[in-house]
Every structure is written in structure tokens, then in C-alpha cells.
Design a protein around this nucleic acid. Structure first.
Lengths: 127, 127
DNA sequence: TCCTTAGTTCAATGATTGTTGAACAAATGA
DNA sequence: TCATTTGTTCAACAATCATTGAACTAAGGA
């Protein structure tokens, strides 16, 4: 039903380069971006990052990314859907995000990576 | 006569994205890069950055940039010539440096530039 | 209704930052 | 030789960072 209060996000024109760079200058957060870049349509939930750090830490890092304007976070039931702010970032800093993603891929800074390809599916509450 | 011991720099292949991003995630260091981008041929000396911060601070920030592999620093007499490691960065992270420089320019994050513009809202101790 | 899932809040903690000032060193120039 | 220029080192400090564990809330499913 999505009747949840939205979380605060900076407007596109309030996103600043130093803040974005600071947000990305961290292993864990860069890994989150790497994950997200493979699910640009759907996004991911916080729970899908718990291989990178503890639940509490993920909350912290995702907030940092949200406050910097790098990701969008929207409540969905008990979950938070996290997506890259691709358009805003491309508009503000042309070429930047792609160069980051490409480099992150090449260097596989990522958490795991070619992990038999979890098909981006959410919920997995198997029997 | 340049018989000075060189300062330690990482090899091109030792430059990592998180480190570079951390190095650039700072107002002062981003401003240094902005300055340097306008003198890519010659480079600049530390003394030319003292409008951005104190001498001691500049030493600190330039070291950060050097250790991250963003700039090259070579002693010349009593001075240090600082240059962007353009080729190494372009090779490692294609498009990255240019996107940073372009964005830094557009947003004039820079130190001074078109003077008449007080840096946003810093102190206003008028007479 | 009760239980589970998904995530947040909070206080505590140790580590890392960025700044300062005083003292220093090394090359240059008079 | 002596002073100046240019930059470094060091200890100290406040501020911010990233992590932890315990307690918590809110939504959904049985």
C-alpha cells in the first residue's frame, strides 16, 4: 500500500561533487554501487547487501549514499528499495557514474561478483 | 640540480579507485585538482595553493593526493612541482578524471576563480 | 493473535581526519 | 657567510568515521 513517509533526499541540484566523492570513497559503499549497477531497473533491498556488512552497518552506509544523493530509498512494506539516482547523477556529473561503474567492474572491487547470477529476484522465503 | 631523493609514489597498477575517491572527497584537494587541471603542462608548486589552506595543510593534502596516485610530486630546489598523473589515471579509470574536472569547473567548486562570488555563505563579518 | 522478517535507533567505542603552531631542514641569492 | 624562500616534521587536538550489540518498530503471514 506504500503509505509510508518518504525518507529525505537532496534535490538534484543540491547534489555536490565533494559529497558524492566522499560517499563513494569507501569499500562497502562502492560495493553497494557495484551491486546496484547490475540491477538498475529493479534496484535492490538493504537485505541483499548483508554479505557486505552487518545490518546496522548497511543502514548507516545506505543513509550516507541517500544523503549524498547517490541513491534513492523508498519504503515498501518492511523493506527499503534502493536504486541508483542514475538520471540525476548523469545530469549533474556527466560521465562520472559510468566511469566509476566501469572501473569498479574491471577491478572487481565488488563483494562477490560472478556469484552464479542471483537473478535480481527479491523475496526468497523458501519453504 | 635535481639531486634530491624522489618522493614515494604508487605504481600505476597500484592505484585503486576507493583510495582515489577518498583523496578527491575533500574540498581543498578537489580545489587543488581544479587548479592543476589548468596547468597540465607545467604543473604547479605547493606555494601556489596557499590561498586554499595553510602551508602545513597543503603539505598534508598534497601528500594524500600523491599517496593515492593522483598527482606526481618532484623536488625542484626548495620547491615541489605538482602535476596531475593524467596518463596513469586515464589508463586506470577511463573518463573519470575528465568527468571530475568538468564537474568541478561547471560547479566552480574551485578556490577562487570569478572572485566577485563569495564562496556561498562563509562568514560575513561586515564593518 | 502471535511470530517472523526487515530495518532503525541509540550509546559506546576505537580509528581516522584535518587543522594548528612551533621547530626544523634544505636550496637559493645577496 | 647569512638571510630568505619553500616546504616538512611533530605533537596536540577536536571532529568525524565506521562498527558493534542491544533494544526497538512496523509490516506481513500463519
Amino acid at each position: 500500500m506504500n503509505t509510508q513517509p518518504p525518507l529525505p533526499h537532496p534535490d538534484a541540484d543540491q547534489i555536490t561533487l565533494p559529497t558524492v566523492l566522499t560517499a563513494l570513497g569507501d569499500q562497502t559503499r562502492l560495493a553497494i554501487i557495484g551491486h546496484l549497477s547490475r540491477c538498475e531497473g529493479t534496484g535492490m533491498t538493504c537485505g541483499q547487501f548483508t554479505d557486505l556488512a552487518s545490518k546496522t552497518s548497511i543502514t548507516y552506509h545506505v543513509s550516507k549514499l541517500r544523503e549524498a544523493g547517490v541513491v534513492n530509498v523508498t519504503p515498501e512494506g518492511t523493506r527499503r528499495r534502493v536504486t541508483l539516482r542514475r538520471d540525476d547523477l548523469d545530469h549533474r556529473f556527466p560521465g562520472f557514474l559510468d566511469s566509476i561503474i566501469t572501473s569498479t567492474r574491471d577491478l572487481h572491487i565488488d563483494g562477490f561478483e560472478d556469484e552464479p547470477n542471483e537473478p535480481a529476484e527479491l523475496s526468497r522465503r523458501d519453504p
